[in-house]
Each structure stands twice: as C-alpha cells, then as structure tokens.
C-alpha cells in the first residue's frame, strides 16, 4: 500500500533521473576530460580550431605519431622534478596525520571523559580556532620562524599543520569517544588500572574506526593545504600544491602548460584512490558532526 502511494509519476522520475545524470556529468566530466587531455599536446588540449581534436589527438599524432603522449608527464616529473614535491607531500602528510592523531586521541578522550565546565570552554575555543582562516595566522609565524631560523623546512610546516588540525580532530574524536560507553574504561579502573592503562588496554583496541575516519580528514587537510605550505616552505622543500601553483607562473610563459596539466592529474590520482577505498568512512565522517549539531 505504502509503496503504491509512493510510486512516482513517469514525468517526475524522468526529471529526477535526468537531474542526477546532469549532476554526474558536472561532477565527473572535468576530471575525465583533463585526464584524457593530459596525454595530448597543448594544441590539442586547447584547440581553438576544432574541439574534437582534444578527443582524437590530431596534433599529437602529427607530433608524436600516436594520439597519446607522455610528454607532459615526462616534463613535469623529470624535467621539473615534480617527484621531489611528491616525496615532500608524502612526508608532510604522513607525519601530520600520525602526530595529530596521537595528540588528538589523548585530548579527545580526556574531553569526553571529564564532566567539568572547562571542557565546554576548551571545545568552544577549539571551535573558534577552527573558524579562523589559517592564512591569518601565517604573518604571526613568519617573524618568529625567521628569528629561530626554522623557516622553509618540512618539520616546521608539519608542526603548524598539526596545530591547525587539532581543533577539528578534537571535535571529531570527542564526539566519537562519547559513543564508547564509559562503563568500559571505568570498570578497568575499578579493577585497578590507572587511567592511562585503561586508555591503553581498553580504549585503544576499540577506537580504530573513529581514528581512521578522523585520520582521513587530517590527511585531506594536509594534502590540500595551500596557504600554509606556500608561505612556510622554501622552494626546494615545496609540496605538490604550492609546486603546482609555482608551475602556473613559470610554465605558462614557457608554453609548457601540459607540464602543469600532468602534475595536476598526478596529484588528483591519490585522492581518487582514497575516495574509492574510504568512501564509507568519508561519508560517515562528514555526517558525524552534523547529526550531533
């Protein structure tokens, strides 16, 4: 009966399907197009004369004898040494995620298990810190980092990213730990564990789903950051995003836009893989904050 009532008229379901198809094209087409175009020469990728050239690769065939060429990738990875930025990004992401999860689980656990009023104020402070655009803090760092002579190196950037990450990590893990019943660690304490032992032997084994979800978002923050990495890293230590931004300045004038296109595709690929494997965690992480609020 209910399903009978809920049955859609044909026009509406056509409209709804059409809308989804249009949205999917909007969401996915730019990536597919750029991936396809990254194996072409610039005159095909930007073809004023005939847009189908970008599909067939007419100019690429003329130049390289085949409609696909890895010239852009060769230029970016070998000539412009993009691999250095890839390694830097890997280092920055790995340490940012590890450190911020370590600090965040301890802090988030403490926040979830303490009933005092200062917990509220700490969470509010974290919310305010989360709202602050990271770039507004950078001018506060620069002078000190120059004075201590630590500007431009990876560890400095990692520590800054960890700190900027903390407010969000704390909120996520705080709400996650609240869902773990208090009785679990309290009974361990009754049995004679210290608070830290209870955390170590009772909480850590059951916390991984929440930690993985939070870690994904820490990773995305570190991976996607532009403002902090651009301003705090010296040229030889650049991660991928500032390196691509720098490509825009240099390669555009030299006619090597395809280097930048190849670099952009290379930097997008890991994110594709991430979404493919962790779609469920990403969705649950996005909604975790919302369902509470």
């Amino acid at each position: 009966m209910a399903s009978q009532l809920n049955k859609k008229p044909l026009a509406l379901s056509l409209f709804s399907t059409g809308f989804i198809v249009i949205w999917l094209i909007l969401a996915a087409f730019p990536f597919i197009w750029t991936l396809w175009g990254s194996f072409k020469v610039e005159l095909d990728f930007f073809s004023k004369a005939d847009w189908t050239n970008a599909l067939t690769g007419a100019r690429t065939t003329v130049e390289y004898g085949s409609p696909f060429t890895g010239a852009g990738y060769h230029g970016a990875w070998v000539q412009e040494e993009f691999w250095r930025s890839v390694i830097n990004t890997a280092i920055v992401c790995f340490f940012t995620v590890t450190i911020s999860l370590t600090l965040g689980t301890l802090g988030g656990y403490a926040l979830s298990r303490s009933g005092f009023k200062y917990v509220f104020w700490l969470l509010i402070a974290a919310l305010i810190f989360r709202a602050m655009p990271p770039i507004t803090l950078v001018s506060g760092y620069l002078l000190q980092f120059f004075n201590w002579n630590v500007w431009g190196i990876l560890p400095t950037t990692i520590i800054v990213l960890v700190a900027i990450n903390q407010p969000f990590t704390l909120w996520m893990l705080h709400s996650f730990f609240q869902k773990i019943p208090k009785e679990l660690d309290e009974s361990a304490i009754v049995d004679g564990c210290t608070r830290f032992q209870a955390f170590r032997y009772v909480i850590i084994p059951v916390m991984w789903p929440g930690v993985i979800t939070t870690g994904l978002f820490s990773f995305l923050l570190a991976y996607n950051d532009f403002a902090v990495t651009t301003l705090l890293l010296a040229e030889e230590n650049r991660t991928m995003v500032p390196a691509i931004a720098a490509f825009m300045g240099t390669t555009q004038t030299e006619g090597n836009v395809m280097f930048a296109v190849a670099a952009v595709v290379s930097a997008t690929a890991p994110l594709f893989v991430l979404v493919m494997f962790f779609q469920r965690q990403i969705v649950s992480g996005l909604t975790a904050g919302a369902v509470k609020g």
Binding site: W23, L24, A27, A28, P30, F31, T34, L220, Y223, N224, F226, V241, I244, A245, M248, A260, V264, A267, T268, L271, F272, L274, V275, M276, Q279, I282, V283
Partner: peptide, 18 residues
Amino acid sequence: IFFSLLPMIVTPLIGSLI
C-alpha cells in the same frame, strides 16, 4: 555518491585549475 564526492575531495587549487 562516489562521483559526487570528487569535486569536494579534490584539492581546491587543483579543482579550480581543472
């Protein structure tokens, strides 16, 4: 959902360049 997530997950600078 997989395809819908892409525009959000991708680095803002990279998405705008594309």
